[in-house]
Design a protein around this nucleic acid. Structure first.
Lengths: 252, 252
DNA sequence: AAAATAGTGTCTGTAAGACAATATAAC
DNA sequence: GTTATATTGTCTTACAGACACTATTTT
């Protein structure tokens, strides 16, 4: 089976005599193909900072560096299904909010061979996140405070020590945070970072953590209630040492 | 060369005795790989509607249906470089604004074999767009007026006749319009759809075309001038039959 | 002068931010 | 009662939308 690197080069086309049509009909099996993986950025809020899940590589390249959970896609598997599988296999999580954030394909991003990575963002609440640290490590993201545009992002472990990242995973993390920030204001994505029932202040803390800035309490409350996406459960907080806040749920 | 479909299945790992590490070190060349293409959604404003560039397929599958300009990526080519090459080869355009919008990878999206498509959005002004219809067709996008979320999109030719689309390209077009709409408000992306010098009303018409709704003239002008991204050229419109408007340029 | 659009000034309504007052739980 | 936070109400300010008015060109 011949492998060609320049599928777009000129050929004598038999019929029809139109080069474009010929190239469109070219059998893709003749081309050399890249490997395709999915990498999942699992994000959870934790008391003012964003946490993510990383796995320490035991093999070259980037041995002992930290990497996003990922895996190669299967030939009959949808991309999002592959991300969900990775999340299940490497974090033990099911039914998590998943969204594609971008595809990374620099030719030398993996020194071994050409591997594209379709990156996904996964959002969970703190409780489910803490329950899944099977052999892997929870890491705290260090996101530039004022930086609107997301470049690469630094990551610290629980002792505050920098965790060196493998491949271009710092860029992928940066894009994930940027995308989450962008969606927070005009989509109901913040609820994915909270348990079923939560108080308005819980919701505000999540927004403040993701956006990395303080928000006005009054207008935040007004704005959220005005969306019509919140439904009072009728329940209240318990054991809080002060007036308990009403609990809400996300009502699609 | 053995082809395996389930790279994540269990194996006896020699050293280290850690399954995860073993899988991470697995040679990706052993896995069956999909083909990867880029497809480019070229968008330009045209008197109240958005136009795009489509190419009629001459081969099966989807023979005589209309498709986005696209092509397979080369093994040493960055993804965005592949999109720029497609734009150069199929539309004769260089130096165009390009942004990745998403990757489409449903297993059966191409009936022949597994082909992923990394989709890019390209933005040009009307003049450069009109100059590039070499053998292909300009098409008018029919975007749902009120629809905030972009599903598939319909496409009409110059006579207003529906153009049936190949593959999942209606979905890709829908995502492109949705992404453009989302970025218009808080990024300087609208300028990419205009020539070097333009009037404030030109800019407003572009915004109205993309968003598919009328905008308030006064506040639009105030808002745009307040961004600090506009610089008066000192020139004016010419031959317009009324008071000429000042010309501006986009000042990064 | 008439027509047509550019550009400016002002008013108003809406929503965010600030602040004060009241409510309700644990202790 | 004290403490601490929840929740409501009111005032101020910033900005978008609306409208009126003036400016400048071609015909």
């Amino acid at each position: 089976m011949p492998i060609v690197d320049k599928p777009m080069s000129n050929h004598q086309s038999p019929t029809p005599p139109d080069e474009q049509a010929f190239l469109d009909g070219y059998d893709p099996a003749l081309f050399e193909r890249p490997s395709v993986a999915v990498d999942v950025v699992l994000l959870a809020p934790d008391e003012g900072s964003i946490h993510t899940l990383l796995i320490q590589r035991q093999e070259h390249p980037f041995r002992l560096k930290w990497a996003l959970p990922g895996g190669f896609i299967r030939m009959n598997e949808d991309l999002e299904a592959a991300a969900a599988r990775v999340l299940r296999e490497k974090a033990g999580l099911k039914g998590i909010f998943l969204e594609q954030i971008g595809t990374f394909g620099a030719p030398k991003r993996d020194p071994r061979t050409r591997i594209l990575s379709v990156a996904y963002m996964a959002l969970v609440d703190q409780e489910r996140f803490s329950a899944c640290k099977a052999g892997s490590a929870l890491a705290r993201l260090v996101v530039p405070w004022d930086g609107e545009e997301g470049g690469p992002v630094e990551v610290l472990d629980v002792q505050g020590k920098a965790m060196p990242l493998a491949f271009d995973h710092a860029d992928i993390l940066g894009l994930a945070v940027k995308r989450l920030r962008g969606k927070l204001d005009y989509t109901p994505v913040g609820f994915q970072l909270l348990p079923k029932a939560f108080t308005l202040y819980d919701l505000q803390k999540v927004h403040e953590t993701v956006l990395a800035r303080k928000l006005n309490k009054d207008s935040f409350r007004r704005r959220m209630l005005a969306t019509g996406l919140l439904e009072a459960t009728g329940e209240q907080q318990d054991d809080v040492g002060h007036r308990p806040a009403a609990l809400y749920r996300y009502s699609a």
